[in-house]
Structure formats: C-alpha cells, structure tokens
Design a protein around this nucleic acid. Structure first.
Length: 475
RNA sequence: CGGCCGGUAGCGCAGCCUGGUAGCGCAUCAGACUGGGGGUCUGAGGGUCGCAGGUUCGAAUCCUGUCCGGCCGACCA
C-alpha cells in the first residue's frame, strides 16, 4: 500500500480519504482540508535562472538548476526545491507502484548502519573509501549506508525460520551515500542519492531465478511508464557480487558507460507481449536477454555475435541494476531456514536497485529541447501551466480564476502563473519547467472567445473555447 | 587519488600581469511607460574580493598555507 506516496499529493484525485479525522473541536477552513492541487506561481518557491550556472556541464544539470529544481549544498549533495521535489516524488511513486504490483513489500531501513554488521559479510574492509565512515559520541564505528544487503539479511534471518515463509521480496526507498571520488553531473552522479533497493529471498536457485525474472519485468514496466526506453544489458557485478546481473541502460550521448547492442533494440516494444506476473516469465526473460546488449566491460569485439552493421555502439545512463548472488550474504551471515525435511537451507538471494534521483536527471537527458525540459505526463510536476498573459486585466483575471478553479476542482495539478510579468517571461519560464500543457489566456484571444492550448512536447498550439480546453485537460 | 583550471554582489563575468576610492551585464527593490515569446526609462539596495598568515605606508592584485568548486584520467546506482 503506497501510504507514504499518498501523503505527498502526487496524483490527481477527486477526493481524499486518507486523512486522519481532526479533533472535532478543531476549526479548519475547508480549503485547508481539501488541499488545493493547484499552485499560484506568485506564491510558489520557484527560483528560475536565465543564465547557465558555470559548473553545470550536462543538459540535465543545467536545466535542473535553471528550473529551480535543485540546489547544491556540497560536492555531490543537493537540496530538492519544491519543483524538483514534486518530480522526485512522482518518479518514486511509479517505482513503488511497480514494485508493489510485482509482489514486493515496502519497508524502511535507516541510513546509518553499524560497522559490525558489515564486518559479518566481510565488506567493511572491501568497500574502501567509497563508504562514508562516521563515529558516534561513544566512538562506536558507524557508516552512512551505501546499500543494504547486510541489514536486510540481518532483519530477515531474525524472523524467518521456515521454507514455508518463502519467497519474500522486501524493498525500501531510502537515501544512500557513496563517497565518490569525483561527483559530477548534478544528481546524475551525486554522492547522496535516492535509491530503491530490494532483496529477494528464496529457498532454492530456481525460486531465486523466478524472483529475478519478476524484477526484470518490473523494471521494464517501471522505466516504460516514465517514457524511457531502458535496455537490459549483461553487466559486471562489481562489489555486490554474484553471477547473474543486468544493468538497465538508457541511451544518451551524455551517458557514462559505453554500451553495445543489437540494432533491433532501437525500435523494440518490449512490453507489447509482456506476460502477467502470475504467468511463466521464463520465455519472456529468455527472449529479451537473448537479444544482444552489453556494457563495454562485458563486450568483447572479438567474440561479438553481431556483424558491425547490426551492432549499435552508444553511450548510456545506468538507471537500474539487478543481481542474483545466491548465498554470498546469507552464507556468512547465517540466513538459514528449515527446509521441507527439517534440514537447514541457506537462502538464495538477489538484490535490485533503481537510482530514483538519478532517474529525474536521466528523464531530462532523454526529454528536452533548446527551451527547456519536456516532462513526460507521468512524472511532470504539474500537468498544466495556466498563463495569464495580462495579469491585472479584469477579464483575463476572471477567466484565469475560473479555469484555475475548475481544473483544481477536477483534481488536475495546475500551476497558475498569476505574476505581473510580461508574456515573454511567462512563456519562457513555462517552456523551461516543461509542464505538458500550457493554457494561455490573453486579451486578444478573449476578444474572440478563445484561449490557447499548447502541447509542450510537440509545440502544437490550438485556439479553442475555454470549455473545450477544460474538457481536453480534464478528460 | 593524480594532472590541469578556477573562487570578486543571487547568477554570468571584468579587474590581478604592472599594488593606490571594487566594476559591468542579468537578477532584486521603488516608480513610470508598456503588454501575446526573457520590453524601455529613471532611481535605489546589495561585496569583510573563499579563508588564514606573510610582504608592504598601502593587497582583490605579490608570496605561503588551507578550504571549496570545475575539467581530464583511474573508480561507481
């Protein structure tokens, strides 16, 4: 149940049911209880920039700074301002919904972990300087978690004692810290980042592979919902370890990894024939892992099965990574359950990560133009930007208020630019922050009884009556 | 962690070489004119020049140290 996501006001909803009742004596204005999904720009904290900050090298970083989404507070560490925060929460919510649909269960583990836990798996020394190590007032060794295999294994083994309780798949969405030598590209490669990580526990290798395949499908569905084409590629397992692993890569010129894939990937709709989670996922998995795709670590031109004409060489952004690693952690840490015959069985594990904060930048890399960001509808901070082209004009103000009220009542997230600014400034800001729809109301149009609706992605504009515009935006 | 570059108003930058009243554009504030794609004019506010030490009558400027940031490499969701 996405209880947390619900609180953030992320999706349009006609009515709210999740509130605790207020004490009966408390007097509250109705507008407070039924929170307005809209926002007036004159009151909103949206510090947009006209010029490009010097430190930003790639387009997503530049646009996130210019659109007032983030603010760097230290190398690789960012504050999320209201607009950026909305997008982050929407991305997070899509990830959550797809995890839930795949049968994973959400929990929340702390950011700070004890060093002792990591000594049990032997990774305390292996992880090196990437791990931020801290001591508390009693000189106890702690660390800011870069990942959670040890902690989840510890939690799991404390309670789960029987094969009857398997399989289990637990996830959380929590801030991680990896002390990168060289953070760069904004939230694309920050030191602190929001990650969804989950962990599957199965009684045997066959079960673990089924869990792996479920996540494989869940990941494809997740990225597709954000308007991204993510290609699963054979990958190195790195410090997580294991023998089966795929990275999910979005093709982008600014990507950090070199990648190679079969040309067929470019216009493949992987979800067209996707099975349901209750079906046998093996054929689907086999099919899409057999179409060649590999990161440069795994790609060997000498043994490549593809002719040069069929092979695409590109750059990519890693947005997800899944691992099957068997008993690498359950073994040393003693995650053992009783099997069907009462014998002890060490559980088979996998772990699965999605870089939630990185995805925000990755989506921008994949969807922008000269004027700014072009948000896919599914993650846009607001659905509609309502532009009053002449604030202070009685008729413009009245029509805007009417549209604003109607949209918010219909549960449409709308950002109303009611500022006393020139039309050009308002259009430029709207294009920059990339809301899917712009609804412009000006005296010239009103004279003819029309408003202008613009689709950000295509630039297509249409003049229509305000009722027709409302119907389009609420339908 | 190695190499290179940088830190001057919220942002973008000049001034530094050759020491002598800290500047420009944008942004901000006030007012006026404007009003369909970052408009024009008038006026105003905003800086211990990253920090510490040194040289000097005098340091943004020269020297030393230090912190922070960017780029290139090696490493990573």
């Amino acid at each position: 149940m996405p209880a947390v996501g619900r609180r953030w006001g992320l999706r349009p909803r006609p009515r709210r049911t999740g509130f605790r009742p207020l004490p009966s004596r408390t007097k509250v204005r109705a507008s407070y209880v039924a929170r307005d999904p809209g926002m007036r720009l004159s009151a909103y904290f949206l510090p947009t920039l006209k010029e490009n900050p010097a430190e930003a090298q790639i387009v997503s970083h530049r646009l996130m700074l210019r659109a007032g989404m983030i603010r760097q507070t230290a190398a690789g560490i960012y504050a999320w301002l209201p607009l950026g925060f909305r997008v982050l929460k929407r991305v997070e919510q899509i990830v959550r919904e797809e995890q839930d649909a795949a049968g994973a269960q959400e929990l929340l583990m702390p950011t700070i972990q004890s060093a002792d836990l990591w000594r049990q798996s032997g990774r305390y020394d292996d992880y090196g300087k990437e791990m931020l190590r801290i001591t508390d007032r009693h000189d106890r060794e702690m660390l800011f978690g870069p990942t959670n295999e040890e902690m989840i294994t510890d939690i799991f083994k404390s309670y789960v004692k029987s094969y009857r309780d398997l399989p289990k798949n637990l996830y959380h969405i929590q801030w991680k810290f990896r002390d990168e030598v060289r953070p760069r590209f904004g939230v694309m490669r920050g030191r602190e980042f929001l990650m969804k990580d989950n962990y599957s526990f199965d009684i045997d290798a066959d079960g673990a592979k089924r869990s792996y395949q479920r996540m494989f499908l869940a990941y494809l569905r997740t990225f597709a919902r954000m308007g991204l084409k993510a290609i699963p590629m054979r990958a190195d397992t790195g410090p997580i370890g294991g023998d089966l692993s795929h990275e999910f890569i979005i093709l982008a010129d600014t990507g950090e990894s070199g990648v190679f894939c079969d040309r067929r990937w470019l216009d493949l709709d992987v979800l067209a024939a996707a099975p349901g989670y209750d079906e046998d996922l093996a054929p689907f998995f086999e099919r899409y892992t057999s179409i060649y795709a590999a990161t440069d670590e795994k790609h060997d031109p000498a043994t490549s099965p593809l002719a040069a004409s069929e092979l695409v060489s590109a750059r990519g952004i890693e947005v997800g990574h899944i691992f099957y690693f068997g008993t690498k952690y359950s073994g040393p840490m003693g995650a053992v359950v009783a099997g069907p015959n009462g014998e002890p069985v060490t559980v088979e594990m996998g772990s699965y990560g999605i870089g939630v904060s990185r995805l925000v930048a990755a989506i921008i890399e994949a969807s922008h133009d000269e004027a700014g960001i072009v948000w896919p509808d599914s993650v846009a901070p607001f659905r509609v930007g309502l532009v009053n082209l002449k604030s202070g004009d009685a008729e413009c103000d009245a029509v805007c208020e009417e549209l604003y009220g109607a949209l918010t009542r219909a549960g449409v997230d709308v950002l109303y630019d009611d500022r006393d600014e020139r039309a050009g400034v308002k259009f430029a800001d709207m294009d920059l922050i990339g809301l899917p729809w712009q609804l412009a109301v000006g005296p010239r149009g009103l004279k003819n009884g029309v408003v202008e609706l613009k689709r950000r992605a295509t630039g297509e504009r249409q003049e229509l009556s305000k009722d027709a515009a409302l119907a389009r935006l609420t339908g």
